[in-house]
Design a protein around this nucleic acid. Structure first.
Length: 256
DNA sequence: ATGGTTGCTTAGCAA
């Protein structure tokens, strides 16, 4: 079972690229972030023609998450349902073959100490609470997304320059660790300790050609799933060429 | 400190 997660930075701008990538790689499940459109404008028909049903949680202009599956989607659910009023579409869950998939788009946070930064930390705490409330660590869970946090310095091209700044601050790393501590494993780190593996490169200042990137997109899974995880990697090639997303897809393969 | 790039929406925000 091949799983992928990809911040596409607008599904309408990236439609052809994503469909072509699906045709090339044929993942069983693809989690998307930053679809940036209301559900009625998501290219559902093209995805169906490509063999994928979609569970959508979008909004106008910003955010937006989705889960695409070649296998039947049994249940879907959106948001945290924690009683807090939410106007940002950042979380969707879907069950496929008894596995609970979650596609999460963690807030960027803009700048350490800002209002958006505090919102980010609170949102990450809500994600941990959501796991506590809805699931058991012995369930089959795959938590995918753009976490907007580089977990360690080896996930950052210039760790000295980035030290303490947004995407790398200690509080963000701590909030991510509390999510992991619920009972998750970083599938990529399960298979390699290599530094310099990135999933996002800034569009500006030749970030990609200079490989000035960060690893902020992750596939986490619970214990029953990590024992089945045969491989995990980042498809850096998908960041190449004309009109790419600023993120590359992350993949994980699980034995059936 | 600022600006650089892209997308959505059309001047400015978010990333």
């Amino acid at each position: 079972m091949l799983i992928a997660t990809w911040n596409v930075n607008s599904i309408r701008a990236r439609k052809d690229r994503v469909l072509s990538w699906l045709d090339d790689h044929k993942p069983d499940v693809l989690c998307l972030q930053e679809t940036k459109t209301v559900d009625q404008n998501f290219p559902v028909q093209e995805f169906l023609q490509a063999g994928y049903t979609v569970a959508l949680h979008g909004q106008k202009t910003y955010n937006g998450v989705a889960i695409c599956s070649r296998r039947p989607i049994q249940t879907t659910d959106t948001g945290f349902d924690d009683g807090i009023t939410e106007d940002q579409a950042r979380l969707i869950s879907a069950t496929v073959d008894g596995i609970h998939f979650i596609s999460a788009y963690v807030p960027n946070g803009q700048e350490v100490g800002s209002e958006k930064y505090e919102f980010k930390l609170a949102w990450m705490a809500r994600l941990r609470s959501f796991l506590d409330r809805r699931f058991d660590p012995q369930d089959a869970i795959v938590l995918c997304g753009d976490f907007n946090v580089a977990p360690e310095d080896r996930d950052v091209y210039d760790p000295i320059g980035w030290r303490g700044s947004i995407l790398c601050s200690e509080a963000e790393r701590g909030a991510l660790q509390r999510i992991v501590d619920w009972g998750l494993v970083d599938t990529l780190r399960h298979h390699t300790q290599e530094a310099g593996l990135y999933s996002w490169w800034d569009y500006r200042q030749l970030g990609f050609p200079k490989n000035r990137g960060l690893r902020i997109d992750h596939i986490y899974c619970s214990a029953p799933m990590i024992s089945r995880c045969a491989e995990s990697r980042i498809d850096r090639d998908a960041r190449k060429g004309k009109q790419p997303s600023d993120h590359a897809p992350v993949l994980a393969t699980f034995n059936d």
